[in-house]
Design a protein around this nucleic acid. Structure first.
Lengths: 147, 147
DNA sequence: GTTTAAACGCAACAATATTACAATTAACTA
DNA sequence: TAGTTAATTGTAATATTGTTGCGTTTAAAC
């Protein structure tokens, strides 16, 4: 989100999850919070090119495990990461919102306010989580498309 | 589906889409139709290990383009492929059904009968396609889980 | 049967992800 | 505040997944 979150928020977040406050981690958090879309792995890697790739992967998987971020694959199967808004705890995500993937700018939007309708599955299936994906044009790109 | 589809069905399918009838293509079709779940790329590759990897990729993308199969990424971002049931034409898929990813056996089920409920997006978003994912235990694995 | 465009196989490469281990450092403690 | 230690990072090597270019083969049309 565009809201300005300060470093001590992130530091706090890390300690709450028993993670050491390190420069790479704080930078990842700060970058993600500065965007209103999810961040793709390639994007992360090129922006943080001075941080080792392996370190990035480890930061991402640690954050995901702790419920700080969630991973979402876009239409091309590319991993995108976004901060969890609400109360995701360790190992239990609650990111059942809608993910919108713009076919033009490729951005992935987390539409947290969209509640998923109740879904009934055939007998035998025991769902634990739902995710709804939509693809199409995001507000910015649909404006441009009108010309 | 478990229904027994015969080779001439597939041959017909290929000619209808102006694709040459070749052994690799027929084998891919036959394998996919013999399963009631989507087939992952790694799975395809290991079962068809005598077909070149590149050929497989090309077959899959040709089929997808023609609307014969559709690609779906599972929870791990692995590509899975399944035959399109209905009337998908070239470049226009209509696979807006529910994909169920079992967290235990990792299988991806296409639940074609599940219709997606209508979704209203925030202003500005112009959706062109929806996909709903669910994860949890499939019938087989939920049975075993009871023990 | 000949011809030809489509499809295949091979080789090389690019991108993405994982593992093992040594070096560093944040956090704790004395 | 220095010393200790476990967590984290960096490096190297490797695995997996996907792409591109090109020569060879083959299905399909004549």
């Amino acid at each position: 989100m565009a809201q300005t979150l300060h470093n001590f928020h992130f530091e706090d977040l890390l300690t709450r999850h028993h993670l050491k406050k390190t420069a790479p981690r704080l930078r990842v958090l700060s970058m993600m919070s500065s965007r209103n879309t999810a961040t793709s792995q390639p994007d992360l890697e090129s922006v943080m090119n001075d941080i080792d790739r392996v370190t990035l992967y480890r930061i991402l998987s640690a954050f995901e495990e702790k419920g700080i971020i969630h991973k979402v694959f876009d239409l091309n199967g590319t991993a995108n990461y976004a901060l969890c808004t609400s109360n995701c705890d360790e190992g239990h995500h609650h990111d059942e919102h809608l993910h919108f993937n713009c076919t033009n700018c490729k951005n992935v939007y987390c539409l947290n306010d969209m509640q998923l309708p109740a879904i009934n599955l055939p007998a035998g299936f025991e769902p634990q989580a739902f995710t709804l994906y939509a693809s199409g044009l995001c507000p910015k790109c649909s404006k441009k498309a009108v010309k």
